[in-house]
Amino acid sequence: MQRMKRLAAAIFLFGGFFATTSASAENYPSRPIRLLHGFAAGGAADTLSRIIADGLSKKLGQPIIVEAKPGAGGNIAADAIAKAAADGYTIGLVTGAHAISAATYKSLAYQPAESFEMISTLVYYALVIAVRSDYPAKSLGELVAMAKQKPGALSFGSVGFGSTHHLAGELLNAAAGVEIVHVPYRGDSQSVTALLGGEVPVIVGTPVLLASQIQGGAIRGLAVTSPARTALLPDVPTVQEAGIKGYDVRTWAGLLAPKGTPPGIIAALNAATLDALKDPDLKQRLETAVGGEVRGSSPEEMKTLIETEISKWIGVVERAKIPKI
């Protein structure tokens, strides 16, 4: 008898949970949604956030308010997302740096894969290694030669410690056998300003932010980090073309929500995202924003991507002997 009572209670509770979850998903969203990201205003993450927020707002019928929480390679924003109410009204845009943090930090206040419900990937894109146009190195090969002559004398700027930009530079150090010192900045725009102002001789940045400066002659693109050249910068060779075989760094951006967000809400957000990505205008805006390729996913596929990336970057950090912070 007691067993039957416990079974009935369990069924009742499960039914109540299912009904509540279904109801919350059915009425969702009924108010504005916050979309957080962890990088400076004006950078690639900020631009992507605003484009997808516009598309999601049209699909969901509610405003999507973009909020930047820059710092610590995106970790400040990720922590805020992880600790937000799991009700679908706080979501986040993360980049490849989200997985890298598991490899570069001794400890995090959250787990990059387990503290979130994944929604969908959005876009994949390469990075570009660049110098000021008047810099002596005219190619990546010449830069590597200069770095070998004076180990530790050159530096490169990035959007911050633990970013894909940072690890792309560290991987170049390991692959080319050089020591170019990393200098973190709070976003792409600040690193470009630092390059133009002579604070650093080299930066790793996003092609879209550097394209106009490269085309205008202020900055020289030495190499892109993907195996193939990018459509945005067709005249800039790849790192592999410079003789560093097997070098391949591409980052990505995707949406996620706090752990425990109801499945029905995650399904609604995933459907709205995939639907928005089908819009030709939005797709073009996203691809133009980073010089990349739009690619949506299921929540499960995005989680697998993050887990795979974590494993990859742990290996890179260990091989390059990058100290954790």
Score class of each variant (00 low, 15 high):
S120Y: 01
S120C: 10
S120A: 09
T121W: 01
T121E: 09
L122A: 03
V123M: 01
V123P: 06
V123F: 02
Y124R: 14
A126M: 01
A126R: 03
A126L: 01
V128I: 14
V128D: 04
V128G: 04
I129D: 06
V131K: 04
V131D: 08
R132T: 08
R132F: 01
S133N: 13
S133L: 02
S133E: 14
P136Q: 03
P136R: 04
A137F: 05
G141C: 02
G141F: 03
G141A: 09
E142P: 01
E142H: 01
L143K: 06
V144N: 02
V144G: 03
V144M: 06
A145L: 08
A145V: 11
A147Y: 05
A147P: 11
A147T: 04
K148I: 01
K148E: 05
Q149F: 08
Q149G: 06
P151E: 12
P151A: 13
A153M: 07
L154H: 11
L154I: 08
S155H: 13
G157E: 08
G157P: 12
S158Q: 08
S158P: 11
S158V: 10
S158W: 03
V159D: 13
V159L: 14
V159W: 02
G162S: 09
G162F: 03
G162T: 00
S163Y: 08
T164Y: 02
T164L: 05
H165S: 15
A168Y: 02
A168K: 02
G169I: 01
L171R: 08
N173I: 03
N173A: 03
A174N: 08
A175M: 09
A175H: 00
A176C: 06
A176Y: 02
G177N: 12
G177V: 05
V178A: 10
V178P: 04
E179I: 00
I180K: 05
I180L: 07
I180T: 06
V181W: 00
V181E: 10
H182W: 07
H182K: 12
P184K: 07
P184I: 08
P184T: 11
P184A: 04
Y185A: 10
R186T: 15
R186Y: 12
G187K: 07
G187Q: 08
G187D: 10
G187R: 06
D188L: 10
D188N: 15
S189G: 05
Q190A: 14
Q190F: 14
V192H: 09
T193I: 13
A194D: 11
A194Y: 13
G197H: 11
G198K: 14
G198L: 14
V200D: 09
P201Q: 09
P201K: 04
I203D: 12
V204Q: 07
V204W: 02
G205E: 15
G205N: 15
T206R: 00
T206Q: 09
V208H: 15
V208I: 00
V208M: 15
L210R: 06
L210T: 11
A211R: 15
Q213F: 15
Q215L: 14
G216E: 12
G217Y: 05
G217F: 06
G217L: 07
I219E: 01
I219W: 00
R220Y: 10
G221D: 05
G221T: 05
L222C: 11
L222F: 11
